[in-house]
Design a protein around this nucleic acid. Structure first.
Lengths: 172, 172
DNA sequence: ACAGGCATGTAAGTCGTTACATGATTAG
DNA sequence: CTAATCATGTAACGACTTACATGCCTGT
């Protein structure tokens, strides 16, 4: 159950509302794990019921800020230490590559060119983030390490997709 | 619904039994999409009921080989053409990197070193596959294109993980 | 004879998506 | 005053995991 631990991790760093967490998933975290607001609010309720998170402040418009309790923080750490990442992979874009032979070569090439463009855009986004990055506390440094992975992997994707598109050129 | 289309794609290439498909997911395809046998058998039943796949042969031990019907083949092609890959990402190993600040630097470094080793192993596996690769029909060529992505991305992961482990060195 | 791998299926429960539903605050 | 954004929640349905359940064939 990774969502629980993703939420607890963010709530161990600083208080956040369900809305905040939803936005963080949409922006930075969404590149490694996605979650919809309905899932987040439901999970926050459960974390509170289990004593892993608590409401620390309430604001206008019904906003509630949660923070991880000591038990909650201990639970993320336990999860990081004692469990191995599940090998479950889901990469729909790459699954489609296995099936490209079912299309005309021109269509396959177009798909790969769109992939190249999408990844180039994502890479540019990461480059902007990296250029703007500053901060030296541990969570920021962990973020920078993850961002570096994004940079390197998106670069590899862009180069691969361009190479792959060329494989489906009329010539070949 | 990617699983349906992954199955239909394989059944459009050649007849396969549920067992075969399960094995293919465990081996090559598992790196981009995972599926358990229970999910596969259930889905094959549905595909047959909808006229997208049909049983073409039966063997000892209850083995049944399925093949995509014309309607089934048309359905994968429609999916490839008319739908965009869903942006849903789930990469638990990278999610953990965002949370590494919760561990001692030594533990974080150990995690990243294990990641480097895991990806190096996967890379070696892909390199063996690439060395042994031959075949010139369209499905094989699509496989080779996907394999090239695996090679490049695993290489990027290995280099990143080594760099990242160094970030958590005692010195820093 | 028996171990290992082949082969298929069902059931219960959890996780995740999409749609529905409501309302408050702020900026223009 | 009104549109956009903030903000939270529930319900229905579909996807996925884990466990249970069964039995056949082949090689040693």
């Amino acid at each position: 159950m990774s969502l629980r631990h993703a939420l607890l991790g963010m709530l161990a760093e600083a208080p956040h509302s369900g809305w905040d967490l939803t936005k963080r998933f949409e922006r930075s975290l969404g590149n490694v794990w996605t979650a919809s607001h309905s899932q987040i609010y439901t999970q926050l309720g459960k974390l509170e019921a289990e004593g892993l998170a608590e409401v620390v402040a309430t604001f206008p418009r019904g906003r509630k800020d949660y923070r991880a309790t000591e038990a909650g923080r201990a639970e993320v750490v336990r999860w990081l230490r004692e469990t191995e990442p599940s090998g479950t992979q889901r990469n729909e874009a790459m699954l489609r590559v296995f099936l490209l032979w079912l299309l005309e070569p021109g269509e396959a090439r177009a798909y790969l060119e769109r992939e190249a463009a999408t990844h180039a855009e994502q890479l540019a986004f990461y480059e902007d983030l990296a250029a703007a990055w500053q901060g030296d506390d541990p969570p920021q440094r962990a973020f920078r390490v993850a961002l570096e992975a994004g940079l390197r992997i998106e670069r590899a994707y862009v180069e691969w997709a361009r190479w792959a598109a060329a494989q489906y050129d009329d010539a070949s």
